[in-house]
């Protein structure tokens, strides 16, 4: 990490684990859960959020001294909405099938609390470079959880990863299915995402006892 000073590196690394936006700060859960039934959609969503939050944080940080505090929410919303429109149009142009499965959830990045939360908490008070690192770090922390949830849901729910049949063919009974293994349809339904995130939180907090909440 010669490129980054230790303080700067922490801006990126902290949100990946001990200050994770989803499991610790409780931000951005809305869009996190609905699209995690497959790994591919989770990865695309994670990349989109990295782009929006990284760029958005820099823009807001550059404008932080000229935004009147009374209308800052609207200014922030306009910045995010513009970036999200770019993402949406790019997805529609280059990955049309995927943009259909993500549907309205691309639009919902606008109201993803991580983005507004980082604008308010960090970009309004720090320079562009730091804000950029903070944005990337938090978006990656969000992406990591998304990808973990997507991985388990797709693996156990449909027996595939990124669309490849890693466990064998369920119809022709090859691979693991030859031993009588069945896909768990429960993992595909929406509430399973909540339970998987709940378990991730459980594991994380039993590893790091300092994170346990007071009752």
């Amino acid at each position: 990490m010669a490129l980054l000073s230790k303080k700067d590196a922490n801006l990126i690394l902290d949100p990946l684990a001990d200050n994770n936006p989803i499991t610790i700060q409780v931000l951005g859960i809305c869009s996190a859960l609905a699209i995690t039934a497959e790994l591919k959609a989770s990865i695309v969503m994670a990349i989109s959020v990295v782009f929006v939050l990284g760029v958005g944080n820099v823009v807001i940080s550059l404008m932080r001294n000229i935004i009147p505090s009374k209308i800052r929410i609207i200014v922030q919303l306009v910045v995010v909405a513009t970036l999200v429109i770019i993402v949406d149009q790019v997805l529609k142009a280059f990955a049309y099938e995927l943009s259909k499965t993500l549907a309205v959830f691309v639009g919902l990045i606008i109201t993803n609390c991580i983005i507004m939360g980082r604008f308010e908490a960090f970009a309004l008070g720090n320079g562009p470079w730091k804000s950029f690192l903070d944005g990337i770090g938090n978006a990656l922390g969000y992406g990591v959880i998304l990808i973990i949830v997507g991985f388990f849901r797709e693996l156990f729910g449909s027996g595939t990863l990124m669309g490849f049949k890693v466990l064998g063919d369920p119809v022709e009974k090859t691979g693991l299915y030859a031993t009588g293994y069945e896909n768990n349809g429960f993992m595909i339904i929406p509430p399973a995402a909540l339970i998987v995130v709940g378990i991730i939180i459980w594991v994380q907090r039993s590893k790091n006892r300092a994170l346990i909440e007071e009752n």
């Binding site: 499991t23 995130v197 709940g198 378990i199 939180i201 594991v203 994380q204 909440e213």
Partner: peptide, 12 residues
């Protein structure tokens, strides 16, 4: 269970 308190149990 302590690690589930608060957020975790709410999710589940």
């Amino acid at each position: 269970p302590a690690p589930l308190r608060g957020l975790g149990i709410t999710f589940i």
